[in-house]
Write a protein that binds this DNA or RNA. Structure first.
Lengths: 206, 206
DNA sequence: ACACAAAGTTGCGTGCACGCAAAAATGCGC
DNA sequence: GCGCATTTTTGCGTGCACGCAACTTTGTGT
């Protein structure tokens, strides 16, 4: 017995495989360039069959990027739950979304450079932000009580964060109107979320 | 000369091809079921090579769904611009997003049934809503003046609309908590957008 | 310890997306 | 009308995602 807190052996093995795959994917992409990594290489490096690789990730980019966004979704949800219950919802949400980025472990800049310099990887990376939506919605619902409202708000928050992340990882677009003041990712996230805050406040029962 | 308002012949031909493709895709999907339509069939029915098909759409689902969401993005942008300038931003945005659905041309219910009953098609259909983001952002920027703010707000609005559309096309999820009061799509959109309205109001210079 | 159910892995086959370069279509200036 | 620059279409080749069914591993009840 004593399944500890991490489920059975089966589940741990699954997690290990997933991590091995994404780690291998990231390493190979950095060594040879993202275009020169075939799915078969990743699978081989992780010691599984190519078919199994596809049981874990449904695209090469997803595997590469997963290493940088692994548990973010869980963290955000947990962070929001950890905020004091009497804190205004807007503040709590902003703090929770920022949580994964304020801890001093900005993902190895080298990997970030790799990702930002490749359109497909950028897209996949930004895409991972949508993973926070469900945990966020659940955590918001715990405060507001309304499932529909919290789903909408979580989607809005996630979308705002996505815009912030996009503006941070994307090279200045041709359009000079879209320039955003340079700054850390945390700053941009804060800026973007501040625009959503009024909607959060309106739903705040506190 | 007189390029009318529709560009040259070249451009019109492109549009015609795109429409022929998506029309063929939808028709074939309804006739034989979405799973039994191969890309080659669609291309053949539209009179182009399979490779050309992929120059227009990057997935089978996208082609099928395009027929139902063709110019929605353009409509929303235009609708927002058409609202009186002194109308509050939130009201104008809500009206604009609802515009494509209030005109009495609800897409042929038959096609909708097809789409809602297939997960991949549902996903693609909901996905098309993100197309409104750019036009919406441009139109909002024309009112607020800030590119960053309007991008964030447009993303939030689009996300809220997405949630509404999802809740409308998805069969009741296993989770009984997520039930939303039945209603027309327009009603649900209105409900969802109302949750975002405070954020729009906060950015409204009017 | 053993056998059986449940869950995970693998190989195979099919259809698909897309880069690339050649060929065809288009439209402009003369 | 005529040839030339640009744009679009097409065929080909490669790598990929995923359903399916056989096989292996893991967990459980006896």
């Amino acid at each position: 017995m004593s399944p500890d807190e991490t489920g059975g052996l089966r589940e741990r093995k699954k997690i290990a495989t997933r991590e091995a795959l994404s780690a291998a994917a990231l390493r190979l992409a950095m060594e040879h360039g993202p275009e020169n990594v075939r799915v078969d290489d990743i699978a081989e490096a992780a010691g599984v069959s190519p078919r199994t690789y596809n049981n874990y990730f449904s695209s090469r980019e997803q595997a590469i990027v997963a290493a940088l966004s692994a548990e973010r979704a869980l963290r955000v949800g947990a962070a929001l739950r950890a905020r004091p219950a009497d804190e205004p919802l807007a503040e709590a949400v902003i703090a929770a979304v920022l949580a994964p980025y304020t801890s001093a472990e900005e993902p190895s800049g080298e990997a970030l450079t790799l990702i930002t310099s490749n359109p497909a990887l950028r897209k996949a990376f930004v895409q991972t932000l949508t993973e926070i939506e469900q945990p966020l919605a659940a955590a918001i619902e715990a405060r507001t009580g309304s499932a529909f409202t919290s789903t909408v708000l979580a989607a809005a928050v996630s979308a705002a964060a996505r815009v912030a992340l996009e503006s941070w990882v994307s090279p200045a677009p041709a359009n000079p109107l879209l320039v955003v003041p340079q700054g850390s990712l945390a700053e941009r996230l804060h800026e973007a979320l501040a625009r959503i805050a009024p909607a959060l406040a309106a739903a705040d029962p506190g």
